[in-house]
Design a protein around this nucleic acid. Structure first.
Lengths: 146, 146
DNA sequence: ATGAGTGCAAAGGCTTTGCATTAGG
DNA sequence: CCTAATGCAAAGCCTTTGCACTCAT
């Protein structure tokens, strides 16, 4: 699956009339290698050939194409990661000290139970679920020690 | 409990060396009556006697005092609500159409199970949990119909 | 009187947008 | 060729900050 990541991404982009340019290829690559949510400033740092506006625009395109997902935290910066459809469903450990976001997963039985409950709640409210997000806010190992 | 809300808020404010001014009293009142997360622009609208900067500052003070909580969504605006310690633990239905945030709760057994699983995960990662947030992103009844 | 609170205006800072140029199909 | 993509700079916009004034203790 990770092997054909490029093929999959290309398909999703084409599906909405966009090209898989080298800049976008590099972005996807950065996110894949990071393995965890990344801020745009981090992407730009050490990559002077990437124009800031293009990175913002490309991530927006990739988001509408369903390739990446934007994560909002209390941090001043937005974080981006590969869409769950290309990886797997997971959750986040958000450190309020350094702003770092780390991926984590829930035991599948808990997740399943949770999902059932959420669907019931949504149905009652006439709410159409796109997805859910479950984040832990606290202090990472490093910041907790400091 | 809601009757002594003011007393409780006043205590929390004093505890960190702040006063329960009339402006802050009004803010708490607005949030209490709203019963759901509110944006600052909404608070300002129709209340010309409130200065924008004071609202921002007071909500920040109230947040550090543990009276209100700031909620971040994809919406351009931050949302504020009374802290769970003054209400009850709950979750959010976030509409990606109109940006409205609505409160909801989970069956207590599901919540308990979830909490256990989260604590285990956090422990494994050396992560110290402050709190968790579970939100449903999708379309509210109105936006789903449109 | 002394420090917190307030209000107005200006500055900050992440993000978006305009526009001319380049590249891919 | 024709449209998407890119890059630079400038603008947007929510939020924060500076500073002088007011208020409560």
């Amino acid at each position: 699956m990770t092997a054909d990541l490029d093929t999959l991404v290309a398909a999703r982009l084409e599906a909405c009339g966009h090209r898989f340019s080298s800049a976008r290829r590099e972005l996807v690559d950065v996110l894949r290698r990071a393995g965890q949510p990344v801020r745009i400033t981090d992407v730009l740092e050490g990559r002077p050939h990437l124009a800031q506006s293009s990175v913002y625009r490309n991530l927006a395109v990739l988001e509408t194409a369903g390739v990446v997902r934007r994560i909002v935290t209390d941090d001043d910066y937005a974080h981006y990661e590969l869409d769950e459809a290309l990886t797997e469903h997971h959750h986040h450990l958000i450190c309020s000290g350094c702003g770092t976001v780390t991926d984590t997963t829930l035991p599948s039985d808990v997740e399943r139970r949770l999902d059932d409950a959420l669907h019931e709640i949504a149905a009652d409210a006439g709410f159409v679920i796109d997805h859910h997000r479950l984040d832990l806010i606290g202090r990472c190992r490093v910041c907790a020690a400091g």
